[in-house]
Design a protein around this nucleic acid. Structure first.
Length: 270
DNA sequence: CGCACCCCCTGCCGGC
DNA sequence: TGCCGGCAGGGGGTGC
């Protein structure tokens, strides 16, 4: 579910409410997430003050006043919701963090593919991943082309590989490649300078537009206050197989690439 | 090296 | 109406 725009939306929305708050209590109702929530998780978080809340790739990073970080990866169906006061537990509410102002942050995850962990400063980079931030200053055509040199993997798999680029998942990879006019199956190492320029422009345009829309709410995604995003209304190709291309009218095609459903316009993308 | 295929887990949707 | 297979935004492992 949540790719960079969704996680960014959650971080921006929750930060003003959580930064400066101290954790009064932590309740773990279900430890069996993608990895087991560690026995020391609640103790490590309890009593800590949150000094910053940001996004790194698809991971939410809450900085703590002891120098460590609380990481939340939402997997496919994870949700973080801030409630003003006590609430009756809902199905799949796995962890609840109570703050000193009485508000509660609830982690809900139907499929339990998410992760919650506390990491020391030296372990933060490895936990988040070594790909480059697609909206950061290092996301330039020459840098991406360098990482793709002599690589034969598809450009779509390249964009989605978190060791290469952070934050881009299955929805935005298709949308970015449509914006760039590049077919998803093209080998990453074969792209021209001009194509890399269009891909970098597509990354910025699509991700920034999606952030401005509060992300894409396909089925599960909501922000930290259970609000819907609206970028799903602006998808040009994702989940539109058989529908007319909004630019040229050709029928959008779907194909499985590196195991994931992919969507593209056979006329606009080459 | 790249990818097909398996797993993790639950829910929903379409076809029969 | 009900059951069943397929598929879903994530990632990780194996083996060809």
């Amino acid at each position: 579910m949540p790719e960079l725009p969704e996680v960014e939306t959650i971080a921006r929305g929750l930060a003003p409410h959580l930064v400066g708050r101290r954790v009064a209590a932590v309740e773990v109702r279900e430890r069996r997430l993608r990895e087991r929530v560690e026995a020391g998780f609640a103790a490590a978080l309890t009593g800590r003050c949150i000094t910053a809340l940001a996004r790194a790739g698809k991971t939410l990073v809450a900085s703590l006043d002891d120098g460590r970080s609380w990481l939340v990866h939402l997997g496919m169906t994870g949700r973080l919701t801030l409630h003003d006061g006590p609430t009756a537990p809902r199905p799949h509410d796995h962890v609840q963090v109570v703050f000193d102002d009485g508000r509660r942050l609830v982690y809900n995850d139907v499929r339990r593919f998410g992760r919650l962990l506390i990491v020391a400063p030296e372990a933060l980079a490895a936990a988040v991943g070594c790909g480059l931030e697609p909206l950061g200053p290092e996301a330039r055509p020459d840098v991406l082309a360098g990482r793709a040199r002599r690589r034969r993997l598809s450009i779509k798999a390249f964009l989605m590989d978190q060791r290469l680029v952070l934050g881009i998942g299955n929805i935005y990879a298709s949308e970015i490649l449509f914006h760039a006019g590049v077919r998803p199956r093209r080998q990453a190492g074969s792209l021209t300078r001009g194509e890399w320029g269009r891909i970098v422009a597509g990354i910025r345009a699509v991700l920034e537009d999606a952030i401005a829309c509060g992300g894409s709410s396909i089925s599960d995604y909501r922000d930290g206050f259970e609000r819907f995003g609206s970028y799903q209304l602006r998808h040009r190709v994702y989940d539109r197989a058989g529908d007319p291309c909004l630019a040229c009218g050709a029928r959008i095609r779907s194909a499985v690439i590196a195991g994931r459903s992919s969507y593209y316009c056979p006329a606009c993308q080459r």
